[in-house]
């Protein structure tokens, strides 16, 4: 008994130190009283970091039990943002961004596309500008810290408030605020897609020549064509779209023999994007099949003489609801 008491007395100063440390820690966490606002601050810092820092790294992208390794380079010089992303394995695809212009090279199909991308959006992590509007459909919260790619990272959780969207986990580098790891979670909380930096280096500057395309192409490469259409030319009504999704773009693609026209409507709720394709119905023969590739679900149906395909990083029920809710505005005017 006496012995135990002695030990306990000896430990008293240590207990005091632990208590002080705990107090300091709780003060440091005081802003967690509003966890949603704090998580938003972390996401806002991440958005700033991905567009303003000079960095290079190797990213592993996992989906459907397959891992792809990619190189990422980002440069901000004199207010001009440049990015380069390339796969290190076949099919060696490459994406180059110079300010607003984005060029995608597809050596596997000997084709390329040139797009104009709004400024200040990263290849890695496009975060919504209006984080407040998101809280109608997602809960943001902060998790603990852990190491990713040998760097200390803070976990930011993004959980959907209904079952029409997927959740996300982002591990943000405490020092640089870059996203070190990203997970997309399905409705059962299972990871369906993951991106993680294997190596990352934030640098003062990166030479411009490292941001230029390495893909060699010639005149035989096809340039994918599309035209942007005004929203008021839309002939489709969308009745099955869950709350929070908005139309981001309406384009017409030209494909295949005879430049077949395919209408492409892009929707987004801020985190998740959904594409609607309305294509010419090629053939009356079908076999049933909703599809899933990594975190992307897709659903296809026949609509009169059209083929409607809806896909996006959302649950299967979301793409089905959207696909089933598409109608032509005036089906009797043909």
């Amino acid at each position: 008994m006496a012995e135990r008491s002695t030990v306990s007395t000896a430990m008293r100063p240590l207990v005091g130190v632990i208590a002080l440390l705990a107090l300091a820690w709780s003060l440091a966490q005081a802003d967690d009283e509003n966890p949603q606002a704090d998580a938003k601050a972390w996401l806002a810092a991440t958005k700033q970091a991905v567009s303003h820092l000079n960095y290079r790294g190797t990213v592993a992208h996992l989906k459907d039990n397959r891992i792809e390794s990619l190189q990422v380079l980002h440069r901000m010089s004199n207010g001009v943002e440049q990015e380069r992303l390339l796969s290190v394995n076949t099919p060696m695809r490459e994406v180059i961004r110079n300010a607003e212009k984005v060029t995608c090279y597809f050596p596997d199909s000997r084709s390329m596309s040139v797009e104009t991308k709004p400024l200040r959006q990263s290849f890695l992590l496009d975060l919504p500008t209006d984080l407040t509007a998101l809280s109608r459909h997602y809960t943001l919260s902060l998790g603990g810290t852990e190491h990713v790619a040998q760097r200390l990272a803070r976990l930011v959780r993004i959980d959907p408030l209904d079952d029409y969207r997927f959740g996300r986990r982002i591990w943000v580098d405490v020092e640089s605020k870059l996203p070190l790891k990203y997970e997309l979670l399905d409705e059962n909380g299972q990871v369906v897609e993951q991106m993680v930096f294997n190596s990352l280096s934030v640098e003062d500057s990166i030479p411009a020549q490292e941001l230029s395309a390495s893909t060699q192409f010639d005149g035989s490469w096809k340039v994918k064509q599309h035209e942007t259409l005004p929203a008021d030319s839309l002939i489709w009504t969308l009745d099955g779209v869950p709350d929070g999704f908005q139309m981001m773009s309406y384009t017409r693609l030209k494909r295949g023999p005879g430049n077949r026209a395919i209408d492409h409507i892009l929707l987004s709720d801020g985190f998740s994007s959904v594409s609607i394709y309305i294509d010419e119905l090629m053939n009356e023969f079908f076999t049933a099949q909703p599809r899933k590739v990594g975190g992307i679900n897709s659903y296809t149906r026949k609509l009169d003489k059209y083929l409607v395909t809806v896909m996006g990083e959302v649950p299967a029920k979301t793409v089905q609801s959207i696909a089933n809710g598409i109608h032509q505005q005036d089906p009797y005017r043909k």
Binding site: L70, V95, P118, T129, M195, M248, S249, S268, S272, S273
Partner: peptide, 22 residues
């Protein structure tokens, strides 16, 4: 989809990573 998802301003998870990861 992956090529244009950036327009969503949001895609959340790097559509271009998906594209290149091909």
């Amino acid at each position: 989809h992956n090529e244009t998802a950036y327009m969503a301003g949001s895609a959340g998870m790097m559509p271009y990573v998906r594209l290149v990861s091909a």
